[in-house]
Write a protein that binds this DNA or RNA. Structure first.
Lengths: 219, 219
DNA sequence: CAAGCGTAGGTTGGCGACAACTTAAACGGA
DNA sequence: TCCGTTTAAGTTGTCGCCAACCTACGCTTG
């Protein structure tokens, strides 16, 4: 209750947030001393955080130093392939092992999210929570862990695919189909519905990237 | 060319190897100063390595210190569920995107491995290489990364499931079926064959654990 | 004799400093 | 003017030290 200014986020969270906010963009080089000064700590905790981020491939080595990872088209494609499979598995397991309480929470989320249909910002956050809830309902800690990694990697992408006009409605309908399958305990249907959902999201992102003026890819 | 004694493995690899060899067993507490003295380095690189191992959940926090992670029955079950899905995806992608050269290497591996049928030690190593080759043939770096993580987690298990009498022959036959499906470019068949293979391996491990006098789970 | 408190030992987290290395710039010579 | 060499600045890797904290043992007291 004492520290309001600094909620004691460690260097890991601080750097992650700095990347999220856009202070550091893909391709930027991260200098330890600079980060240390920015956050008012020594280089030691910075180094620990950087190493953690490196093992998660959010940062990649360029010679001796670290730069913020970038996702080119190939990487995006590969990432979505893995994500589709893992999310599909999560849905299947959620249908099989999810508790009634967990499933009801999912159902409630959809109802609540329909009211946010015009607020892309809030909808993006709600979307994360929805998927996270499915992950947890799978009751598989390794799956949760791996999906966390996937989602963190996707944080390297600036914009959310929900920003595309009209995508919100479709996404919510897909969410509905997923939850319905889970409610019915139909693992195969849940697996298929979530895979389809990820496929649509990927397709939307590709359209989004195609419209961008493209100032990526540079080193 | 100067250092033959130490092939410049960093602390990360050294600790990992120490766990593999059994110097440190699941549940053991890792003391930084002890590791530093053992490897003849300062605490700093040790700390970095420990943090990396912690992010991969090979080490887990017990209060303030780190202990080697252990896998109970539930964790093992969850881990194999994820592994089956990821390995299955790797096989599917290998069938779709694998180059003829990569596939031929897989075929050769099986022939070579049949000669090792009486050497569980060598066969275990060959088995790892075989699966790794499939991962690489998927041409999906994130899948490779995640499967690496899974396999490293399984390193916490002392014995290999290939140690079970008669399992070697069955495993090789399953490998054969997998490669055949990949050769035919049949993604669905490859997916199913590898999932089946992992399922059999899991079943074998359960039998193995059931026979063990069980001195795990403590602490 | 038991229980609670205090102290001492040990371990982790953080910091500043130094050495090794890489990169880049500047200077000199052809 | 261009290229090579030397030098200097900057950054990372490693180290030893100190403070905070947790634990466990021992002592004291009821």
């Amino acid at each position: 209750m004492s520290e309001i200014r600094t909620p004691h986020k460690d260097a890991y969270g601080l750097i992650l947030e700095a990347i999220d906010v856009g202070i550091y963009r893909p391709g930027d080089r991260l200098v330890e001393s600079e980060l240390a000064e920015r956050f008012g700590v020594s280089r030691t905790p910075i180094r620990e955080a950087l190493q953690r981020l490196e093992t998660q491939t959010l940062l990649i080595r360029d010679g001796r130093s670290l730069i913020v990872g970038a996702l080119d088209h190939n990487q995006l494609s590969e990432l979505y392939a893995v994500r589709a499979e893992l999310e599909g598995l999560a849905a299947r397991l959620a249908a099989q092992h999810g508790t009634p309480e967990e499933v009801r929470v999912l159902r409630k989320m959809i109802s609540a999210d329909r009211k946010l249909i015009d607020d892309p910002e809030a909808l993006s956050l709600a979307n994360r929570r929805f998927h996270k809830q499915i992950h947890l309902a799978s009751h598989n800690r390794y799956l949760v862990q791996q999906l966390d990694l996937v989602h963190r990697t996707m944080a390297l992408l600036a914009t959310t695919s929900l920003a595309v006009e009209g995508r919100s409605q479709g996404a919510l309908d897909e969410h509905d189909a997923i939850v319905t399958a889970i409610e019915n305990g139909n693992g195969d249907a849940a697996y298929a519905a979530l895979k389809k959902h990820i496929s649509m999201a990927f397709e939307t992102r590709l359209e989004l990237d195609a419209d961008q003026p493209e100032f990526s890819g540079s080193l």
